[in-house]
Structures are given as C-alpha cells and as structure tokens.
C-alpha cells in the first residue's frame, strides 16, 4: 500500500512538473481556446442562417462564448509574456467577443444579413488569429 501511495505521489509530481509551461506556451494555449470559440460562433451563425439551428441556441452559445472569452481576456492580461505578443492577442480576443455579441443581437432581431456580416467578421478574425499564432511561433 505504501509503494502504491509512493507511486501515486511520484506520478503526480512528475506530471505536475511536466505541466509547467513557459509564458509563451501558456499564451498559445489561451489563443487556442479563443480560436475554438471564434470557430464555434462562426459555425453556429452559419447554421442559423441556413435554418439548421434555432435562434435560442445561437443566443446561448454566444452567451457561453462571452463568458469564456471574458475569462481568457483576464488570464491573458495577467500573462508575463512580452507586450508585443500579448497586446495583439488581447485586441483579437476583444474583437471576437464583440463579434459574438453582434451575432447574438442580429439573431435576436431575426436579421440574417446582420448575422452574415458578423459571421464575416468572425472569418476575418480567424485569419488574424492564425497569423498571430504563426508569429508567436506555432
């Protein structure tokens, strides 16, 4: 039993040691979450425009995205990574949250053209996020 506990403790320590990431790696992980939510909002918007999902789904997805992006913005603002890397990502995150809010409002109003514009913004943001990631070394 003692050996078992020891193995558990060693495994925990080893894994937690492996977990420690550089600030650059951490910020890349945050950018991954932002990319994922941006893609989710875009996909949900496209599906609503095509009449494949209800408006209530896009609204609740946009709400979930707003909360998660808010948390990510706070996390990234605390990152010790150099400002020339952090600031552009913070702007992209804020823009993604704003596009999500725009999509929610357009869907609430039943405005398909408005929703398509927000989807377009999200597509552009995805491209900018990809460029940022390449610049950050991924």
């Amino acid at each position: 039993m003692r050996n078992y506990t020891l193995a558990l403790a060693l495994a925990t320590s080893a894994l937690l040691a492996c977990q420690s990431k550089s600030p650059e790696e951490e910020i890349l992980q945050h950018s991954q979450t932002v990319s994922s939510w941006t893609a989710t909002l875009r996909f949900a918007g496209e599906q609503w425009i095509a009449n494949r999902v209800p408006a209530s789904f896009v609204q609740s997805t946009a709400e979930a995205a707003r909360e998660e992006l808010g948390k990510e913005i706070q996390e990234v603002s605390k990152s010790p990574v150099r400002p020339e890397l952090r600031s552009p990502l913070q702007k992209l995150m804020t823009d993604a949250r704003s596009a999500g809010n725009g999509l929610r409002k357009a869907v609430e109003a039943g405005d398909r053209a408005g929703a398509a514009r927000e989807v377009g913004r999200l597509v552009a943001l995805q491209g900018q996020l990809a460029t940022w990631k390449r610049g950050a070394g991924q």
């Binding site: 979450t33 994922s36 893609a39 989710t40 996909f43 609740s60 997805t61 979930a64 998660e68 995805q126």
Partner: peptide, 9 residues
C-alpha cells in the same frame, strides 16, 4: 473547424 469541446454547446 478548429472547434474543441470545452462546453456542450
């Protein structure tokens, strides 16, 4: 699409 599942939505 680069969507990872962090939420059931």
């Amino acid at each position: 699409r680069g969507i990872q599942v962090d939420d059931y939505h």
